[in-house]
């Protein structure tokens, strides 16, 4: 198998400078990026598998003595490449606020309660078909200082490796129907509407477990295509 990384899908990503999200103004490059060929340094990447995780890492409601407050949710999905082929055995890391909209991070000073039974960090590995699944509670919206009365829509942060340095991505998953979408400059930094909507999970009654938890589906597409070469590749 040979990994190739086309460039034509990259327009899905936001620009690094999006002035509505004020922190980008001083934290984005102002000179153009230098386009370089993909060498082994870019098309290889670290492999972290099952040795990196344990069962408690994929159930964020069972990491403490008691159960966290909030609406219990199950998130399930597949990690795919740009040809729709599964990305198996790849590490996913997630983190989120608790149901009250408060992060465990020492820098979060939002006046909302911490939950002694919720940390909000998880990690797990996709199976042979690229599937993942974890249990949590729905994170709350929270205020931030970007502009007057700014609130982030409820979201879960996702960090994925995939097979190469170039397939790596950090993103955020949102929940369907959130009234804060029109006002959030981070969500709206993605210029293409279809691409933006790919950040929103689908409610899924099939994943929902009776008398237990609401289910959402969030599929993720990473950069790259796995192709079996039909002939020996030539350097050109």
């Amino acid at each position: 198998m040979t990994l190739i990384l086309p460039r034509d899908g990259l327009s899905a990503h936001p620009p690094s400078l999006h002035p509505d999200y004020k922190s980008t103004v001083k934290r984005s490059p102002s000179r153009g990026l230098v386009i370089i060929p993909q060498t082994l340094s870019e098309i290889t990447g670290p492999v972290y598998g099952h040795e990196t995780v344990d069962a408690a890492d994929s159930d964020l409601t069972r990491q403490h003595a008691g159960v966290p407050l909030g609406e219990r949710i199950i998130i399930e999905g597949r990690v795919l490449d740009e040809d729709g082929r599964p990305v198996p055995n790849t590490l996913i890391e997630v983190w989120q606020a608790n149901a009250a909209g408060r992060y465990v991070h020492v820098g979060d000073t939002h006046d909302a309660p911490l939950d002694p039974n919720f940390t909000g960090a998880g990690r797990f590995v996709t199976d042979a078909e690229g599937r993942y699944r974890f249990t949590s509670v729905k994170p709350g919206a929270y205020p931030w200082g970007n502009h007057p009365n700014a609130w982030r829509p409820a979201h879960i942060h996702f960090s994925l490796f995939g097979p190469s340095f170039l397939s790596r991505v950090v993103t955020q998953m949102y929940f369907p129907g959130d009234p804060l979408f029109p006002f959030d400059p981070i969500f709206n930094s993605v210029p293409d509407e279809n691409a933006r909507n790919r950040l929103i999970a689908d409610f899924d009654l099939g994943i929902t477990e009776p008398n237990w938890a609401l289910g959402y589906r969030f599929d993720i597409v990473l950069r790259g295509r796995n192709q079996t070469p039909v002939e020996e590749p030539h350097d050109d």
């Binding site: 899908g9 990259l10 899905a12 990503h13 936001p14 999200y21 999905g77 597949r78 795919l80 740009e82 729709g84 890391e93 997630v94 983190w95 606020a97 992060y103 465990v104 991070h105 820098g107 979060d108 940390t119 909000g120 960090a121 998880g122 990690r123 599937r131 942060h157 960090s159 991505v169 950090v170 993103t171 955020q172 981070i186 969500f187 930094s189 993605v190 279809n194 691409a195 933006r196 909507n197 790919r198 950040l199 689908d202 899924d204 099939g206 589906r217 969030f218 599929d219 993720i220 597409v221 990473l222 950069r223």
Partner: peptide
Amino acid sequence: MTESRKTSGLTPSQTVGPYFAYALT
């Protein structure tokens, strides 16, 4: 298992934000 309709095209990047440390480092 049903497939999502949202699998044509890359999942866009979003910021890591200020509060990643308790998960990533």
